[in-house]
Design a protein around this nucleic acid. Structure first.
Lengths: 241, 241
DNA sequence: GCATATTTGTCCGTATGTATA
DNA sequence: CTATACATACGGACAAATATG
């Protein structure tokens, strides 16, 4: 994308002024948020891998927005911990450390286990969990390993939703977004994500039976194992580099 | 501090351009963040009670900053959920609903109980908890009921720190900031905060003994009671209005 | 090591559109 | 219908730090 043909620039064109009338009626989203959306997607997809520098000039002119607006988008993503600011050097796609991974899993364990343990009977919101399991199984059928990873995140998002707390949901949305940064480390997404499909279905079964503690136990074991895999991947990467 | 003498306006002067050189060397905090600090304090102290409209013109000229800079500060505080944006009407100090209160306590119960339950032996970070208890006892001696409320928040912040997670700490900082908005509803801060001093010391005792579950039990009872008091205050307020 | 170019940091004024009294 | 205040985005000015030759 270094060679920006006129057409591709047009595709990303976010000229605010010209579309003001449309925007007022259709979407009330600010240009900065749309820019943030674009960058967020690029980051989640690994198009801008961790460590990439996002130059104001290049991105701004590429997207056809002013520096101010772009910086506003950067600010949003920095608050989401997807970018880091280095003074007078610019913004970079966040590079997570091993201790970041540890903290992410500390939070996941604390929140997800509590949400699963405290399910009411009959469990409300279990449908979303079931949907996510099906989504993962279909992704597997289609050999869509990237989609399998996404389905897995949806599964755990559905688990946290069992807590019934908007603030917890928001917290975990951010946690999972950070987690995506880490997943790009895994060389083989299939090997990483596929084994958990069976576990997910098992957890769902226990939830449906109202067995919170049982589900929690499986979940805790899963989280420990996944974290260990990521830590190992980090260690290997450090050795390689 | 509530009675603003003319001098206090000078104190708030934040002229950016003139002090650019100084600022570069001394503090790297942006004008927007300093404005946000001022407003945050005003809100926490109840100088701007929930529901207050913050007019751009009045605040901006009062602090000597441009509308752009002020809006940036507003944005920061909106992200912290201390202000709400109403389209084309302006920003207001957030008014929390009863269901907001319920959610705040849902999160507190989930996080604080988990943090206390999972203490290691000997408990790390118990010193901060002890310090907060002492802080509260001294505030009581000096009949400083506002200070007692602050000490109580410090106590619970120290409890959450037992989880040892930066991300959990940040989450709870925001939760407690929102909680301050609710506390302004309580007509008699002494009656609200004082009884918990004894409970706090008791919880500390169990933590020191490594009795996580015991501490958790006391804590859960406290949280339920406090929430109920706030809900009652809301009900009364609604009846009055 | 040094001078210069580039990039970022900060803040402002303004233009245009939109909602409300 | 007009006046007012807010919403959004742009471009510019200048300082400061970093990168470059």
């Amino acid at each position: 994308m270094g060679t920006a043909v006129p057409g591709s620039v047009r595709q990303l064109s976010l000229q605010g002024r010209a579309l003001a009338a449309d925007r007022a009626l259709l979407d009330r989203i600010s240009t900065a948020e749309r820019v943030a959306d674009v960058l967020r997607t690029r980051i989640a997809e690994g198009f801008f891998p961790p460590g990439t520098r996002l130059a104001e000039d290049a991105i701004g002119s590429g997207l056809g927005v002013s520096r101010n607006t772009l910086r506003e988008a950067f600010q949003l993503l920095t608050h989401e911990r997807l970018l880091t600011h280095e003074l007078n050097r610019g913004v970079f796609v966040r590079v997570l450390t091993v201790s970041d991974v540890a903290d992410l899993y500390r939070v996941r364990k604390l929140v997800e286990c509590a949400a699963v343990r405290g399910i009411d009977t009959p469990p409300h919101g279990a449908k979303r969990v079931a949907d996510a399991v099906v989504e993962g199984e279909q992704a597997k059928k289609q050999l869509d390993w990237q989609g399998l990873g996404t389905a897995n995140l949806h599964f755990h998002q559905a688990l946290t939703a069992l807590a019934g707390s908007p603030r917890v949901d928001e917290l975990m949305r951010r946690i999972f977004a950070e987690l995506r940064l880490v997943f790009h480390l895994m060389a083989d997404p299939r090997r990483f994500h596929e084994p958990y499909l069976a576990t997910n279905r098992e957890i769902l079964g226990r939830i449906d039976n109202g067995d919170g503690p049982g589900a929690e136990q499986l979940l805790a074991a899963y989280l420990d194992k996944a974290q260990q895999q990521l830590v190992d991947a980090y260690a290997q990467r450090t050795t390689d580099g």
